[in-house]
């Protein structure tokens, strides 16, 4: 049930090229969670598992919707402040996409295990999260995908950068794009940049999201073509 997207290039505005690393995704690979997925972007790899809807602790119960809990486990060591900030980003993005009002007073938990980090980790986590939620069959209003853009010292925009490219760049931005209107759901940036550069990066991310959603579609189709 593995599917792969080979690295491909596309011209954007004639000045920067849109290239994504080789993508890979496998759904339903763990037996215990209600939904699971592993997502690979080049050498970056994240494993996601979803449990729920299940019973919720009384202290965390929300009367009109489900409580979503996101845990990010780093590759080595304990989760720190950085993981907490990432968890917040992933959780609020998933909350906006999920139709959690359909499961009031219940709990959903999403666990993301970083397998390897070679740049664009937040976007890979978002993609893994979306695939796992899909695999769990939870009702969603729209899908979402994560795209990371880096601006190198020459002002070129690199999509899906490696850790080395991120280190050399002067700004890194990660966006979550929704599948319904291709708008920005989540944004997390590092480094300083002009408004024009931001708008360009958003436009590039929206283009890249088309490819990623197509990849989602292909990998799900491939998966069900075997079972149906």
């Amino acid at each position: 049930m593995k599917s792969r997207l080979l690295g491909s290039t596309m011209e954007v505005d004639g000045q920067s090229t849109l290239s994504l690393r080789e993508f890979g995704c496998e759904q339903n690979l763990l037996s215990r969670p209600d939904g699971s997925a592993s997502f690979v972007q080049g050498d970056t790899s994240v494993l996601a598992g979803v449990y729920g809807p299940a019973e919720v602790k009384v202290s965390k119960e929300i009367y009109d919707r489900a409580t979503l809990e996101v845990v990010i486990q780093p590759k080595v060591g304990l989760a720190g402040v950085k993981e907490r900030a990432r968890e917040q980003c992933v959780r609020e993005t998933c909350e906006a996409a999920l139709l959690s009002t359909l499961h009031p007073r219940s709990s959903l938990s999403l666990v993301l295990q970083v397998v390897h980090d070679d740049g664009s980790l937040l976007s890979c986590s978002l993609n893994a999260a979306c695939m796992a939620l899909m695999d769990a069959g939870l009702p969603m209003g729209c899908l979402f995908c994560g795209v990371t853009c880096a601006i190198d010292p020459d002002g070129l925009i690199i999509t899906d950068p490696t850790a080395q490219q991120e280190k050399n760049s002067r700004a890194v931005m990660t966006f979550a794009i929704d599948s319904a209107q291709r708008r920005v759901m989540m944004s997390s940036t590092k480094g300083s940049f002009s408004v024009n550069e931001l708008q360009q990066c958003i436009a590039v991310s929206q283009r890249a999201s088309e490819k990623i959603f197509q990849f989602y579609r292909d990998s799900v189709r491939r998966r069900y073509s075997k079972t149906l």
């Binding site: 917040q88 959780r91 993005t93 909350e95 906006a96 979550a176 989540m186």
Partner: peptide, 13 residues
């Protein structure tokens, strides 16, 4: 007038 951060931790688009 340069942006240092555009922080939107999710929510509606």
């Amino acid at each position: 007038d340069r942006l240092c951060m555009l922080h939107k931790p999710g929510g509606t688009s």
